[in-house]
């Protein structure tokens, strides 16, 4: 029953969030700020993690698939498809659930416990719409950019390993990256990231919006936001893979 109650409150909040903004001008002013805070400011960590992820995956693939029957270019191919199909969208979304999700939940949660949300409501502002909608749309719009960066940086990481070590010739690795490329995999990755962006922003906002009490509960809301959005991302990953790939 508790789960159903939570789902009900989440749906109710989303209904209020996706209503017409009280003032479009304020919405358009808020949207780029949220895109910068949630998306652009995450590029650094995405780049860093993707480069290392690509590098390590390349090393692991070379070391664990030493077989004369496997062509040497397969390492580049494996890295490219793994980054495209799973790592750039799903793993990066789990990472963003931690970084962006906790940020959203604690920001809105702090506003709740310091009565800033009540102040908005008293003014006649639809607080859910004003606070949550720009975050959801902002993150959803930034996700394709972040996924593209992640794929690109993962491949750079892998190329770096090929270039600076003698594990695999650079030419073979580059050939593997280009070999049998299926453009739909990129579309699939982008579609998944849009869903995951919505999940991260909306679930985190939900936990922040219904925070109560003091700082301890804001921390708890933040933890719940990260844990629950991660679980929903994992479940949604299976559903989307079944729908889009199988």
């Amino acid at each position: 029953m508790l789960g159903l109650d939570t789902v009900g409150r989440y749906v109710e909040l989303m209904k209020r969030t996706f209503s017409k903004p009280d003032n479009w001008k304020m919405f358009w002013r808020q949207l780029p700020k949220e895109m910068e805070k949630l998306g652009i400011d995450s590029i650094g960590i995405i780049v860093l993690i993707s480069i290392f992820m690509g590098a390590i995956m390349t090393m692991q693939t070379v070391l664990n698939t030493e077989n004369p029957l496997l062509p040497r270019y397969s390492t580049g191919l494996v890295l490219r498809d793994t980054m495209l199909l799973e790592f750039a969208s799903s793993i990066m979304s789990l990472l963003l659930a931690g970084k962006v999700g906790s940020n959203i939940a604690s920001e809105i949660g702090s506003m709740r416990i310091t009565e800033q949300i009540d102040a908005l409501e008293i003014m006649g502002v639809n607080s859910a719409n004003y606070l949550i909608l720009p975050k959801v749309i902002g993150l959803v719009l930034c996700m394709p950019l972040l996924v593209t960066f992640s794929v690109f940086c993962g491949l750079i990481g892998g190329t770096g390993v090929a270039y600076f070590t003698d594990l695999i010739p650079v030419a073979d690795f580059i050939y593997g990256i280009q070999y049998a490329f299926i453009p739909y995999y990129f579309t699939y990755s982008i579609i998944k990231s849009l869903f995951f962006g919505f999940i991260i922003a909306s679930i985190s906002a939900f936990y922040g919006y219904y925070a109560y009490g003091g700082a301890l509960n804001v921390g708890r809301a933040s933890t719940n936001a990260v844990v629950n959005s991660s679980i929903v991302i994992l479940l949604m990953n299976i559903v989307l893979t079944q729908l889009l790939l199988v």
Binding site: S110, M111, T114, E115, Q116, D118, A119
Partner: peptide
């Protein structure tokens, strides 16, 4: 409001 509730 008691705590002013200014938007920080």
């Amino acid at each position: 409001f008691q705590g002013s509730a200014l938007f920080d």
